[in-house]
Nucleic acid binder design. Structure first.
Lengths: 151, 151
DNA sequence: GTTGACCTTCCCATCGTGACAAGGTTCATC
DNA sequence: GATGAACCTTGTCACGATGGGAAGGTCAAC
């Protein structure tokens, strides 16, 4: 199947405004790897193919990829993005749905932030009491080891 | 090798203050699953075994497991915990080393918190401008899709 | 001696991403 | 019209920390 009867067809596609996966990755900011991955997850529809089996993307696809990138940037999970995408595509959706999702995600973020913050504060307290010099005494290790803090 | 010449030996071990993995999990707060995992990673030494090949743990082992649990709770990675454990075991360590690690970890936490916080704030701003009713207009989706916010 | 609780090892899944391998396609250049 | 670079294809493996489950062995108690 080397250089057989197939017209190149990729150049044709390009002339019609299609992008190869590499080009799509470049202009959408999503790596080619991840584009394929999202396709395999069903997050985006299967890309059209050239006769040489190369994936091609049009402006709409790129738009969706940008949507995904931005959503990831805001910390939405792939599943949540799936829902957001379908809401995005549905011109008749109620903004209520979207807002509900966003608020739930904000709550998630808040709880993660709270967790990290309490780790941070606990550790900072310990570090404050640690001399941090050549001596072996160390309240940090003492605490990790379960010793009550020396008064 | 069913009921062969082996003395039970587990009850003996128990009498000598050893704990089975399930018991160790219970009193250390680390699941049996994770205890085995930590062993396979080399984070803790290979446990002693009974003749029936059951792992047994003594008070020192439990102490180390608790140390690990607390460290994880503060968000240290397994690798960092490996270092902390060796510092903990080394009675001559300088507290400087430990403090350095703790401060580096605090910096990590701060940067993660910052990331989440900026996600949260960006999303909160968008959500504020979303009516959240039955209408389809939605600044959140508009932004994700790349539309500049309507003024 | 049988039952049931506990243990053993091994494999798979998560989540999002990256790296690599082995091979096919396209295209420009000689 | 052949060669080689740049790109594409599918596939597998890995991360980090954890959980789930299967298939089978051991222990204790009745």
């Amino acid at each position: 199947m080397r250089s057989a009867k197939n017209p190149p067809e990729l150049s044709t596609a390009r002339q019609q405004g299609y992008y190869s996966i590499g080009r799509a990755a470049e202009i959408s900011g999503v790596t080619a790897k991840m584009i394929r991955h999202y396709e395999s997850l069903g997050l985006i529809p299967e890309a059209a193919r050239t006769l040489g089996d190369y994936r091609v993307y049009d402006a709409t696809d790129i738009h969706a990829l940008r949507f995904i990138r931005r959503s990831r940037h805001l910390g939405f999970s792939i599943q949540e993005i799936g829902t957001l995408l379908s809401l995005w595509h549905n011109k008749r959706r109620a903004s209520k749905e979207v807002k509900r999702l966003a608020l739930a995600h904000i709550a998630d973020l808040d709880s993660k932030i709270g967790e990290l913050q309490s780790m941070r504060d606990a550790l900072a307290t310990l570090a404050t009491h640690c001399h941090g010099d050549a001596r072996p005494e160390c309240p940090i290790l003492d605490d990790l080891g379960g010793l009550p803090p020396a008064e």
